[in-house]
Measured scan of single mutants.
Amino acid sequence: MTVLPKDIPGDSLKVTVGTANGKPGDTVTVPVTFADVAKMKNVGTCNFYLGYDASLLEVVSVDAGPIVKNAAVNFSSSASNGTISFLFLDNTITDELITADGVFANIKFKLKSVTAKTTTPVTFKDGGAFGDGTMSKIASVTKTNGSVTIDP
C-alpha cells in the first residue's frame, strides 16, 4: 500500500482569532474563523484551546458560528481559569461536516476595569488537533492569535 501526501505544500487550514475593542463593562464579541476549508477536504472534527487573561476578560458565552451545522449536538465549549476549550465533531461522520469558510465560534467577553488603554492577547495554547471530512488528521493548520483592547 502506498500512502501519498494529501496536502499540497503551502496549503493549510487557517484558524484565526479576531479582535475587538471596548470600554470597561462593555461586552464584545471576538470571532474565531476558519478559511481554506474546502482545500483541506472539509473539517469533520477539531479540538483546540485559547488562552486569555482572566483578570482583564470575563467569558460571558461561547457560541457556535454559522458554519457549524447542528451545533447543539456537534459543538461544545467550556471556559475557566483563562482557557477556553473548543470541540467539534460531526456526529453523523459525513452529513454535518464544516464545508465552508466563515465564523466557527463567537466568544463574548465582558471587559474588566483598567486604568490605561490595554491590549490583551487571545492566543492559541498547545494541544488539540483538526481532522478532515474523512477524519484524517489535517497536518497543516495555520493559527493566528487575536486580541481585545480595553480603553477606559
Score class of each variant (00 low, 15 high):
Thr2Ile: 11
Val3Ala: 10
Val3Asn: 11
Val3Arg: 11
Pro5Glu: 06
Pro5Met: 06
Pro5Asn: 08
Pro5Ile: 07
Asp7Trp: 12
Asp7Phe: 14
Pro9Thr: 13
Pro9Met: 13
Pro9Asn: 08
Pro9Val: 10
Gly10Asn: 11
Gly10Glu: 13
Gly10Thr: 09
Gly10Cys: 12
Asp11Cys: 09
Asp11Ser: 13
Asp11Trp: 09
Ser12Glu: 13
Ser12Met: 08
Leu13Arg: 08
Leu13Val: 14
Leu13Lys: 10
Lys14Gln: 13
Lys14Glu: 14
Val15Thr: 09
Thr16Glu: 08
Thr16His: 10
Thr16Ile: 14
Thr16Tyr: 07
Val17Arg: 00
Val17Asp: 05
Gly18Val: 09
Gly18Thr: 13
Gly18Glu: 08
Ala20Tyr: 12
Ala20Leu: 13
Asn21Val: 13
Asn21Lys: 11
Asn21Cys: 13
Gly22His: 13
Lys23Asp: 12
Lys23Asn: 11
Gly25His: 14
Gly25Thr: 11
Asp26Lys: 09
Asp26His: 12
Val28Thr: 11
Val30Trp: 12
Val30Phe: 12
Val30Arg: 07
Pro31Asp: 13
Pro31Asn: 07
Pro31Thr: 12
Val32Met: 07
Val32Asp: 02
Thr33Cys: 09
Thr33Arg: 11
Thr33Asp: 12
Phe34Cys: 12
Phe34Gly: 08
Ala35Tyr: 07
Ala35Glu: 09
Ala35Thr: 08
Asp36Arg: 13
Val37His: 11
Ala38His: 11
Ala38Glu: 10
Ala38Asn: 09
Met40His: 07
Met40Arg: 10
Lys41Cys: 07
Lys41Ile: 11
Lys41Leu: 13
Lys41Thr: 12
Lys41Phe: 14
Lys41Asn: 10
Asn42Lys: 11
Asn42Asp: 14
Val43Gly: 10
Val43Ile: 09
Gly44Phe: 02
Gly44Leu: 14
Gly44Tyr: 00
Cys46Tyr: 06
Asn47Val: 01
Phe48Ser: 06
Phe48Glu: 04
Phe48Gln: 02
Phe48Thr: 07
Tyr49Glu: 02
Tyr49Gln: 00
Leu50Gln: 08
Gly51Thr: 08
Gly51Val: 09
Gly51Asn: 14
Tyr52His: 12
Tyr52Arg: 08
Tyr52Leu: 11
Asp53Leu: 09
Ala54Phe: 13
Ala54Arg: 13
Ala54Ile: 13
Ala54Leu: 09
Ser55His: 13
Ser55Gln: 07
Ser55Ala: 08
Leu56Asn: 08
Leu56His: 13
Leu56Pro: 07
Leu57Arg: 05
Leu57Ala: 08
Leu57Pro: 02
Glu58Asn: 08
Val59Gln: 11
Val59Pro: 09
Val60Tyr: 13
Val60Asp: 12
Val60His: 12
Ser61Ile: 12
Ser61Gln: 14
Ser61Ala: 12
Ser61Phe: 11
Val62Tyr: 08
Asp63His: 13
Asp63Tyr: 07
Ala64Lys: 06
Ala64Glu: 08
Gly65Arg: 12
Gly65Tyr: 08
Ile67Cys: 12
Ile67Val: 11
Val68Asn: 07
Lys69Ser: 11
Lys69Thr: 10
Lys69Pro: 08
Ala72Asn: 15
Val73Gln: 05
Val73Thr: 07
Val73His: 03
Asn74Ala: 03
Asn74Arg: 00
Phe75Arg: 02
Phe75Tyr: 05
Phe75Gln: 07
Ser76Asn: 10
Ser77Arg: 15
Ser78Trp: 15
Ser78Tyr: 15
Ala79Met: 15
Ala79Thr: 15
Ser80Gly: 08
Ser80Leu: 14
Asn81Leu: 15
Asn81Phe: 15
Asn81Glu: 15
Gly82His: 15
Gly82Gln: 15
Thr83Ile: 15
Thr83Gln: 03
Thr83Arg: 15
Ile84Val: 07
Ile84Asn: 02
Phe86Ala: 00
Phe86Cys: 03
Leu87Cys: 00
Leu87Gly: 00
Leu87His: 04
Phe88Thr: 00
Leu89Ser: 01
Leu89Val: 00
Asn91Val: 05
Asn91Tyr: 15
Thr92Asn: 02
Thr92Pro: 06
Thr92Ser: 01
Thr94Trp: 01
Thr94Gly: 03
Thr94Ile: 13
Asp95Trp: 01
Glu96Arg: 00
Glu96Trp: 02
Leu97Ala: 15
Ile98Leu: 05
Thr99Val: 07
Ala100Phe: 04
Asp101Arg: 05
Gly102Leu: 15
Phe104Val: 03
Ala105Thr: 13
Ala105Cys: 13
Ala105Phe: 14
Ala105Val: 05
Asn106Met: 04
Asn106Leu: 06
Asn106Gly: 03
Asn106Ser: 04
Ile107Asn: 04
Ile107Glu: 01
Ile107Ala: 02
Lys108Leu: 04
Lys108Ala: 05
Phe109Thr: 02
Lys110Asn: 04
Leu111His: 04
Leu111Lys: 04
Leu111Gly: 02
Val114Tyr: 04
Val114Gly: 08
Thr115Arg: 06
Thr115Val: 07
Thr115Tyr: 03
Thr115Lys: 07
Thr115Gln: 09
Ala116Thr: 08
Ala116Trp: 03
Ala116Val: 06
Lys117Glu: 05
Thr118Leu: 04
Thr119Gly: 05
Thr120Gly: 06
Thr120Ala: 10
Pro121Ile: 05
Val122Leu: 04
Phe124Trp: 14
Phe124Lys: 07
Phe124Tyr: 02
Phe124Ala: 02
Phe124Thr: 02
Asp126Met: 15
Gly127Thr: 02
Ala129Trp: 02
Phe130Arg: 02
Phe130Trp: 03
Phe130Asn: 00
Phe130Glu: 02
Phe130Asp: 00
Gly131Ser: 03
Gly131Asp: 03
Gly131Ile: 00
Gly131Gln: 00
Gly131Thr: 01
Asp132Trp: 03
Asp132Pro: 03
Gly133Ala: 03
Gly133Met: 04
Ser136Arg: 08
Ile138His: 12
Ile138Asn: 02
Ala139Pro: 15
Ser140Ile: 15
Ser140Pro: 10
Thr142Val: 06
Thr142Asp: 02
Lys143Asn: 03
Lys143Glu: 04
Thr144Ile: 07
Thr144Ser: 07
Thr144Cys: 05
Asn145Gly: 10
Asn145Trp: 03
Gly146Trp: 01
Gly146Pro: 00
Ser147Phe: 06
Ser147Leu: 06
Ser147Asn: 05
Ser147Lys: 05
Val148Gly: 09
Thr149His: 15
Ile150His: 15
Ile150Pro: 15
Asp151Gly: 15
Pro152Ile: 11
Pro152Thr: 15
Pro152Val: 14
